[in-house]
Each structure stands twice: as structure tokens, then as C-alpha cells.
């Protein structure tokens, strides 16, 4: 009986619909005390620091938004997080986090010896266990001779820093499979693949997954972003299960299309900090939770259930 995606360790479908009769993913045993417990915290699994690259292949699918929201969610859960914006020419993570005025030094300055690594880390004032590190300034060039090596040195230096190693190092990968992609994936142990339910994004995602697997990164999970249940219902959009069938990757999260994303981006205030929380913000939080526990979704939201009210009889 596979557990429900929405509640890790929660009760299950009485009779799950077996679309494929083959062996299903074995759910992790969970302590019963964690079941539906208010203010429980995710249990960190795997060795720290977890170096995770957030990539997609295609641009504009939400890599940076996901990095910002998952990063801040992890910080809210109490883990120390360093988010590295590895997008050399077109960095945006600082804008999404509202930290653009505080980025004075980047990795380029660290390499040049203009500053130390701890001076280049920008600590978020909202959650002090979240830090941002930008690779370079928008108009500077990254010397590729040791681009990948530089990131590996950075990860090693972060591991050995006096304040203690961070729990998570999230690397926001640039679009494409160019030099920036190669640089970004070099130190990563696991990957989060962001895709949208459209064929262009899926093709790029498949290709990128292939490259990651060739590089030895086997722990790849996907986040399906900008999902619209109304379009899925009208069969104008691929469902999440269709996407999964095409890519064959475990699901970390499903993020619904939400106008609040644009608003939060413009404000420099990530969705997960919104009060009251939005649908997309909650989905990001759930994805972050699964990332911590190295878990994956076991059930997905398919469509909105029609309301059954007094006027439903009349079609209302």
C-alpha cells in the first residue's frame, strides 16, 4: 500500500489503482509518532552537506524560483542552507530573494583574492541560516579554466568552515547544457530537475537527465512546475503522471500555476514566506520536506473536485 504523497507516512489509499502491475516503489517506514503531528520537523537523511543542483535544460521553467523557495523552506525547517547562483551571465537569485543590494562580492572576487569566502556569502536577515553566494557579477566573465574546479573548492571550503558545514548547498544551474551547466553540476551529488508539462521542456529535461546520469549523478528527482488542473481536466495539458511516464523520474513536487509567483518575484519575497500561504508556496514547502527526507511523492493532485452544494443540483 503506497503512502499518500501529500502526507509522508500518512494513511493510504484503500485500494490504489494499479496502472502498471509491476513492482511499485517501496515506501520508507515512518515512525508512527510523526503521523499528522503538529509542528513536527523533517528528518534529515543522507550525509551533509547535501550538494544539490537545480537544473532543467530549458530556460524559464522556474529553476531560480524553485531554488529560492526550497532554500528558504529548508532554512525555515531549521537547516543551514547555502544557495549558490551559478548562472554566470544572467543571475537572478539575488533578486528573487530580495538580496540584490547586498551582493558586493562574488566568487570571482574570492578567486582573485579580493575578499574571503565568508565575506562573499550574503546572509538573509529573515532567516539567518540561509546564505547566498553569487558566482559572478552580471558583466564579468568567468574563467572556465577552473570553473568546475572552483565550485568544488567552494564546496570543500564550506564544509571546512569554522561555523560548521551547511546542511544543504543548493546550486542554481543556468539554462542550457553549455559551460555554465558543466560548471554547476561538477560538485553536485544529487539533482532536482524542474520541468513544465509541455513537450519542449520535457525533451530538454530528458536530455539533461541523460547528461547528469552520464556524469554519475544518479539521485535525480523532478519537480513539475506550472501545473494547471483545469487544463489537465480539459486535456489541454499533460498530467503529472503523463510527465512521469515520459521521463521515468521520481516526483519531488508538483507546483500549481499561481499568479502569486510573479508577485512574489517582483517583491523579492519568496512565496514560502507569504502569510497566508499560497497554493504554490505550500507545494514548495512540501517539496522541500521531501528533499530533506529523500522522499518522493506517492500520489498526486489530479483535478479539483466539484463542489457538492445545494445549487450543484442545478449546475451551480
Amino acid at each position: 500500500m503506497p503512502p499518500l504523497h501529500i502526507l509522508p507516512g500518512a494513511t493510504l489509499f484503500p485500494n490504489p489503482l494499479p496502472r502498471h502491475p509491476s513492482k511499485t516503489l517501496t515506501p520508507k517506514p515512518r515512525p508512527p509518532s510523526a503521523l499528522l503531528q503538529w509542528n513536527r520537523k523533517p528528518e534529515l537523511s543522507g550525509t551533509t552537506p547535501r550538494v544539490t543542483v537545480i537544473t532543467s535544460g530549458k530556460g524559464g521553467v522556474g529553476k531560480t524560483t524553485t531554488t529560492a523557495n526550497i532554500g528558504l523552506s529548508l532554512a525555515r525547517f531549521g537547516f543551514s542552507v547555502v544557495a549558490i547562483d551559478a548562472d554566470v551571465g544572467l543571475r537572478n537569485l539575488d533578486l528573487l530573494l530580495g538580496l540584490e543590494n547586498r551582493v558586493n562580492y562574488t566568487v570571482i572576487e574570492v578567486l582573485n583574492g579580493d575578499c574571503r569566502l565568508d565575506q562573499a556569502l550574503v546572509r538573509d536577515k529573515r532567516w539567518s541560516n540561509f546564505e547566498l553566494l553569487c558566482i559572478s557579477k552580471p558583466r564579468s566573465k568567468l574563467p572556465l579554466g577552473f570553473g568546475g574546479k572552483a565550485l568544488t573548492w567552494l564546496v570543500d571550503a564550506l564544509k571546512a568552515r569554522p561555523g560548521g558545514s551547511p546542511d544543504f548547498i543548493l546550486i542554481d544551474c543556468p539554462a542550457g547544457i553549455d559551460a555554465g551547466f558543466i560548471t554547476a553540476i561538477t560538485p553536485a551529488n544529487e539533482a532536482v530537475l524542474i520541468t513544465t508539462p509541455d513537450i519542449t521542456s520535457l525533451r530538454d529535461a530528458d536530455r539533461v537527465t541523460g547528461l547528469l546520469e552520464c556524469d554519475g549523478i544518479r539521485d535525480i528527482k523532478m519537480v513539475v512546475n506550472r501545473v494547471r488542473t483545469d487544463m489537465i481536466k480539459g486535456e489541454d495539458m499533460m498530467s503529472v503522471l503523463d510527465v512521469q511516464e515520459m521521463l521515468g523520474l521520481p516526483l519531488l513536487g508538483v507546483i500549481p500555476e499561481d499568479s502569486e509567483v510573479i508577485r512574489s518575484t517582483n517583491r523579492g519575497y519568496p512565496l514560502v514566506l507569504n502569510k497566508p500561504p499560497t497554493l504554490a508556496g505550500l507545494a514548495f514547502e512540501q517539496a522541500a520536506w521531501r528533499l530533506v527526507e529523500q522522499d518522493s511523492m506517492q500520489a498526486v493532485v489530479v483535478e479539483e473536485q466539484p463542489k457538492r452544494g445545494f445549487f450543484s443540483f442545478f449546475g451551480g
Binding site: P2, P16, L17, L25, V302
Partner: peptide
């Protein structure tokens, strides 16, 4: 929302 189980093996 209605939920559907993930069937990836």
C-alpha cells in the same frame, strides 16, 4: 482536489 497514486516502478 482529487488524488491519484503514483505508479512509477
Amino acid at each position: 482536489y482529487r488524488l491519484a497514486p503514483v505508479t512509477l516502478t
